[in-house]
Amino acid sequence: MEIADLLKLNALVLWAAFAVAVVFGFIAQRTHFCTMGAISDIVNMGDWTRMRMWGMAVGIAMIGFYGMAWLGWIDPNQSIYTGNRVIWLSATLGGLLFGFGMVLASGCGSKTLVRIGAGSLKSLVVFFVMGFAAFATLRGVTAVLRVNTVDKVSFEMASGSALPAWLASLTGMEPTLTGLVFALVVGGALVVWALVGQDFRNANNLLAGIGLGLVVIAMWWVSGRLGFVAEHPETLEAVYLGSNTGRMEALTFTAPMAFTLDWIIFFSDTSKALTFGIVTVAGMVVGALVCALLEGSFRWEGFRSTQDTALHLTGAVCMGVGGVTALGCTVGQGMSGLSTLSLTSIIAVTGIVLGAIGGFRFQIWLLDRE
């Protein structure tokens, strides 16, 4: 492959990622899909409907991910979620911090982008603060603290942290077939659980569950299949085009917010190129904006009070620091990561849920205090 062909393919990968992110943003705005909202519905009303949306989406994404691996389209070991090192403490504490922060900030990173598209100025503020905190935790002062403390606590899994790979190493089964069977059992159970829910089977809920599950699958295909070049013409090494991590990527929004700010600030620096994460951030906002305009729900929104401002700023910092520490957010670990059946992702999502419950308890305490 010549350099000119490589550049054309790179542009195609980025446009494809942007288009898929637009679909995600549109569906999320249309269906009110929100992981924090799902947890809130359960805690406050005992309503599992939005959690069933999430469960169906994750289940479909699992089946699609390992289906593509079985077909040989993607390599399940080439993602940040399935590495040999399980940073369980970082995943736990980062997840707790992210979950607590998303409650204070009225939504996770993906919801923040969707709300920006729908006219929320306070979500725009959350985006800048969260992106700044994420960048500091990637390369700045909190990065030094993270690397020298929690990231040092881990254990190794020789087969990788994906549960199917671990099971294959124990049983001697073929890894991709094991992954497909594992995904069909676990993912299928999640889909069935969603469908048996009372009043779940309507167009809106099915659009969220099926549509977003397919979006995650599409992102893995774009990055891991379309964007994979076995031999770069200059380095002669395998490369995933548009990747920030050098590996196959899907949707995640904490670190990409930092990359987006970095690209905007240093736009004239020719070394700063558009990447997979940056275009998906933009795509989310555009998709939500299109949906909000079409359905007439676009509304300008600002902070209600000084306390509201303080809570959102605090929540944004917690999400930026926690999301990078945990290697992902409710979409990064909660959908993309879980689709790989990664042990690290399971730990991180557990931390996010517990952190969110703590955030709700804190809000109740604030109301009682007032």
Rank of each mutant, 00 (worst) to 15 (best):
V150L: 05
L163V: 06
L327V: 09
A326S: 15
G224C: 11
L184Y: 03
R30P: 06
S339Y: 08
A208C: 13
C318G: 05
L6F: 09
G337Y: 00
G337Q: 12
G334D: 01
G332L: 01
G64R: 09
Y81I: 10
L177E: 10
Q29K: 10
A16K: 02
F128N: 02
F253M: 07
L12D: 09
F24H: 07
C108S: 09
G315C: 02
V229H: 06
M219L: 15
T306C: 01
E295I: 12
L71K: 03
W54T: 07
G246I: 08
A165F: 15
S106L: 06
F259Q: 13
V317W: 07
L206V: 14
M130G: 09
M53A: 02
L207M: 15
L293W: 09
Q78V: 12
V22A: 02
A136D: 15
S297L: 08
G94I: 02
V196S: 02
S40N: 04
G337I: 06
G72E: 00
A316I: 10
L138A: 04
A28D: 05
L97Q: 05
N205V: 00
T270M: 08
A143Y: 13
A4C: 00
E234Q: 06
N204V: 09
V43R: 02
S161T: 13
I357Y: 03
T340C: 03
D75W: 03
L311R: 15
A183R: 14
E237A: 07
G296R: 11
L251T: 04
N44S: 08
L341P: 01
M68E: 11
D199M: 00
